[in-house]
Amino acid sequence: MTMRMKTHLTSFIKSNYRELVIGGILASAIFIVGHFSGGFIVRPDSVVLPFYMGINIFSFLFCWLTLALLISKFPMYKVLGVFGLLFLGAIAEYFMNIPNNPITIPLLILFWMGVSYLIIPKFFKKYQIAIIFTYGAVITYFFMFRRTSNYAEDHHPVVTTFLIVSISMMIVLWAYDRWKWLTNLRADKAKAELMLLKNQVNPHFFFNTLNNLYGLAVEKSEKAPAMILKLSDIMRYTIYDGNADYVYLKDEIAYIEDYIELNKIRYQKKVEITFIKDIPYSHKIAPILIVIPLENAFKHGVESLMENAFIKIEITTTNSGIFFRIKNNYEFKELKSKGIGLENLQKRLAMIYPNKHKLEITKTEDIYELSLSIKTT
């Protein structure tokens, strides 16, 4: 045992000393009654004594720790009430040592239902009708056949099997319910992260555009109305279509074209922009995705160059996917890192198109090129 484990164990014992003492007393009482009733304790032959003694010790420790945990989490009267059912069941088994005594089976069922209610209350309440119906059927079967002459041979094993199977099914159902809950939780978390990534796109773009729009309005420029219209279209697409899981590629391209025209007005300098489109297939794509590399091209390319800035964009489709390439020049000293925008793109691609995309980036001293292929089928 490592020093760290010893520290944790010592801390646990100190913080739960009262619960451990009470749990030990209750577990001892249960096992003493179980020993005399023959209901719980395994009485081994001398040949396999060490093995069965090990089982009994493990069972005692498990019962002890379980009781201590329950006492620390729930009111004492609830724990005593539930385990009192097991205690009474053991006494009934001892004084009415017949397979068809009318007390032990109902008490065992009530005990198991009580433990389930304490440990997994939400699950119990969710499936309480099914649980009550199942155990009600077991008890009904038991009382229907307990007085028959062949109960011990034919019906008692059936009742026992029903109990074991119903408990096993309940545990499996609880495990499935937990798995489903965790799956939904991960899906909701991924959806929330994806929405956050979407909301991170272009915030400074809107602020800069509004500043430029203010300048054009002060100058009473003829470009102001066109700029307002483009900005309105972009904001409408971002707010409404941007919340969708997928949009048609043609709508994303229209958004990109508005984005390009607005940036031409913003920068007020000559930028050579080539946009090649070949989209014979009508695919859908995650919205506001391929605009991220374009934003980087303007931010790290056009802004860093005084003249001769260019951006080349190519979007093509096949029957199975979409291919996107963007190429731009830049001032080498300006491109120090891949930036938040590219990290955003990589995270969104990993979440939306796992194992269905390929992203490649090549850089020279003054040319940056990004290519992205996405499988949509």
Rank of each mutant, 00 (worst) to 15 (best):
T2L: 07
M5Q: 09
M5Y: 08
K6C: 13
N16L: 09
G23M: 02
S28N: 03
F36R: 06
S37G: 06
G38N: 07
P44T: 11
P44C: 06
D45T: 13
D45F: 12
S46Q: 15
S46Y: 10
S46H: 12
P50Y: 09
Y52M: 11
M53Q: 00
M53I: 00
S59L: 04
S59G: 07
L69E: 05
S72P: 01
K73F: 03
P75A: 14
V79W: 07
V79N: 10
L80M: 15
G81L: 05
F83I: 05
F83E: 03
L88K: 02
G89M: 08
A90M: 12
I91A: 15
A92Y: 10
Y94Q: 12
F95Q: 11
M96N: 15
P102C: 11
L107Q: 00
I109N: 06
L110S: 14
F111E: 05
M113H: 06
G114E: 01
S116C: 13
L118P: 11
I120V: 14
P121L: 00
K126H: 00
Q128F: 00
I131F: 07
I131W: 07
I132G: 01
Y135S: 14
Y135I: 14
A137K: 01
V138D: 08
I139N: 08
T140G: 14
Y141W: 11
F142E: 10
R147D: 14
N150R: 04
E153F: 05
H155F: 09
V158C: 05
T160S: 15
L163A: 12
L173I: 00
Y176C: 14
R178I: 03
W179R: 11
K189W: 13
K189F: 15
E193S: 15
L194E: 07
N199M: 06
P203D: 02
F205E: 00
F207G: 09
F207T: 12
T209L: 07
L210Q: 05
L210F: 10
N212K: 15
A217V: 03
K220S: 13
E222I: 15
A224M: 10
A224G: 11
A226H: 01
I228P: 02
L231R: 05
D233K: 10
R236C: 01
Y237G: 04
I239E: 09
Y240D: 14
Y240I: 12
G242Q: 05
G242C: 03
N243C: 11
A244V: 08
A244K: 14
L249I: 12
N263A: 08
Y267E: 05
Y267M: 06
P280Y: 12
H283D: 09
I285W: 01
L294I: 09
H300T: 04
G301Y: 00
G301L: 00
E307G: 03
A309I: 02
E314K: 09
T318N: 09
T318S: 15
I322K: 06
F323I: 08
N329T: 03
Y330S: 09
I340L: 01
L342V: 03
K347F: 03
N355I: 01
K356V: 01
H357P: 07
L359C: 10
T362E: 03
D366Q: 09
D366Y: 13
I367P: 01
I367E: 02
Y368S: 00
E369F: 06
E369W: 02
L370W: 10
S373F: 09
